[in-house]
Design a protein around this nucleic acid. Structure first.
Lengths: 233, 233
DNA sequence: ATCTTGCAGATAATGTGCAATTTTAGCCCG
DNA sequence: CGGGCTAAAATTGCACATTATCTGCAAGAT
């Protein structure tokens, strides 16, 4: 039994959501990620309440949470809209990742045990076994790879920030396929990262992770640009 | 006329708050910052509603927002509490600042006009004229100094993140006084930073800002530790 | 004797329906 | 074709009903 569902690092997401609010939050979030709710679409409280068999308050709470994560924009007296996840937004997000992840990695290199390494290698083996055949599964394994490194970091805020941003990028990249070049690069970088961690090279690992995140971000942006020009014609 | 009230960078804080909710948010926030609401104190919705002459919903909204900024902790079915701003929390926050601010600075160095430099120097002159006599005023001037550099950054998320964290640290440091050593260092670093920006030295500026933020964080932590040991005796 | 366990009652958070205010869209008129 | 008025729609705020948690205490077990 091997569940490869991507999960937030333990102890994270203090949510602060009420039972019903959290449920609705999950569903609306899924609807946005999957594209059932389209960019700039208006999110009418009454309508959502009806669709989710609840009342206004839980909906409002869910919308507030989604605003906090960047999926929704709320303007006073005007209501909520689905945030258009454009290139600028994605760039903002991954740039912050480029700043944070290397620092998280650096700490991990100093703390990693042989068990941690073994875990990383096991996940990487699964990634290579899957070899992007199931892209959703790849996404989850890849997330797990990074989670292993970050989940025990002492700076819970930084880790939470990373997770929040990761989720947004995952949502976007779900719509695209990996180019062959990117696939090869991901494999190479993961393997090399493991080697650097084994060697205890904190600076090297941090630099590589920065490059890895940067590459991931650029890859997504390229896809978005391609999709946009395709739409224009 | 020279208002030196610290203000968020323009276009920031898309708030997403309803009129009443925003008002209550401001007041509760002030109450936490000023210490009228003490660490771990329970925030009862009905009571707050009465005190602020409103009903439950605006209170809940305000609490959600405060949770997003780290001032409040909410647990489902148990309500909200004032977040104890302990040393770990402060360390988490300023460490993220150390990661983000240098990047924001680097961009500014590439974009700064002579007018920007003049603004920085003008603010720095005011800072030196005040010379920590009015610590609140110093805090606001210092914030303005950094805001000049960051407010036009293209990455609005990074800038907003910086602002949110800055506000928390400002809230904490309001309780302490600057040591003489720290005062001197702040002056030195600001002056040197201006010089580096003038020279167009992006890397040097970034490194100096990292050191500056690090120093500020450590300074606050030292004060907190001192206050705690004083309380223990 | 002490600790655990189970049970009311109180307290407060959560969810629901509704009234009031604001925005929005349609429509008539110039 | 454009500007102001009116009605519908949606957000916002409020009072109340419901549900969950906490407190204190008593009964039973170790």
């Amino acid at each position: 039994m091997n569940d490869y569902k991507a999960q937030p690092p333990v102890g994270m997401e203090p949510s602060g959501a009420t039972p019903a609010g959290d449920s609705v939050y999950q569903q609306i979030r899924d609807d946005i990620i999957s594209g059932r709710l389209v960019a700039n679409e208006r999110l009418v409280v009454a309508e959502l309440a009806q669709r989710h068999n609840t009342s206004a308050n839980p909906i409002r709470e869910a919308l507030q949470m989604l605003r906090g994560e960047g999926f929704v924009i709320i303007s006073p007296n005007r209501g909520a809209r689905v945030r258009p996840i454009d290139q600028d937004f994605v760039r903002d997000i991954y740039e912050i990742g480029v700043l944070i992840e290397p620092a998280l990695t650096r700490w991990f290199v100093g703390m990693a045990t042989s068990q941690d390494i073994a875990q990383l290698e096991a996940v990487q083996d699964e990634i290579e076994a899957n070899n992007f055949a199931d892209t959703l599964r790849h996404s989850e394994l890849d997330t797990r790879f990074h989670t292993i490194m970050y989940e025990r970091h002492y700076n819970r805020h930084a880790a939470e920030l990373w997770w929040k941003h990761r989720e947004v990028l995952r949502a976007v990249s779900r719509r695209f396929d990996f180019t062959l070049a990117r696939r090869a690069q991901v494999m190479r970088e993961h393997r090399e990262l493991i080697a650097l961690i084994k060697a205890g090279d904190a600076d090297g690992s941090a630099a590589l992770v920065a490059q890895h995140v940067e590459g991931s971000g650029r890859h997504i942006l390229e896809h978005m640009r391609a999709a946009e020009t395709a739409r224009a014609s």
